Amino acid sequence: MTEYASEDDLTAETAEDCAEDFTLTSGKVVRLRGLTRAEHLWIGKGTDDAAEIEARMVSKAMLIPAMSISKVKKWQETGRSSAVSEISNKVRELSGFGEGADKSNVRELRDES
């Protein structure tokens, strides 16, 4: 017999429950979480500017140290690109939409049409 998920099952875990420490190549550690679906939709709302989208994403997903959008933008302008990229890539992975995200279902759907 199939056991279907309940509403409680679906809403019990939050994005912060899945946060994890991430060690940068510098050896420093940050705490990150994946984006919620609402945040995922919001980060690109009203803009096609990749830097703006990245700043919004990092500001929502980086818990320690917490950074505002304006601080992330300043960091994008003055910091090492590799550090910003490491964090952005990890957030994408945690959110399920990184380069390594499984797209096999998309391919299967295309193959069926």
Rank of each mutant, 00 (worst) to 15 (best):
D102W: 10
S59W: 03
S26W: 03
L41T: 15
F97S: 11
D8S: 12
L63C: 14
V29K: 04
T23W: 00
R92V: 09
I69R: 14
D17C: 00
L63G: 13
D111T: 08
E99D: 13
K73A: 14
D49P: 08
T14D: 06
K90W: 09
R107K: 14
A5C: 03
A15R: 00
L41F: 13
Q76V: 07
S59G: 03
D8N: 09
N89I: 03
A101H: 06
R107V: 15
E13D: 04
H40Q: 05
T78L: 09
D111W: 07
E16G: 11
A61W: 01
S104P: 12
L32V: 02
M67G: 08
V30D: 01
K28L: 09
I43G: 00
D102E: 10
D17L: 01
R33L: 02
L24I: 02
S26Y: 05
L35W: 01
Y4Q: 03
M1T: 08
P65Y: 00
V72S: 04
G79P: 02
R107W: 10
E3G: 10
K73L: 13
T2N: 12
A83F: 13
S95P: 08
H40N: 07
I53N: 07
S26N: 04
I69L: 15
S113G: 14
L63K: 07
T2I: 14
I64M: 15
G34D: 03
Y4F: 04
M57H: 05
P65W: 00
A51D: 13
C18D: 14
E13F: 11
A61T: 00
E77K: 11
A55Y: 02
T25D: 13
S81T: 08
V58S: 13
T47Q: 01
G27R: 07
D49R: 05
R37D: 12
E93A: 15
M1F: 05
E7C: 13
L35M: 04
L35R: 04
R31A: 02
E108Y: 06
A12T: 00
S26C: 07
A38Y: 13
E93R: 14
T47M: 03
K45W: 06
E3N: 14
Y4V: 06
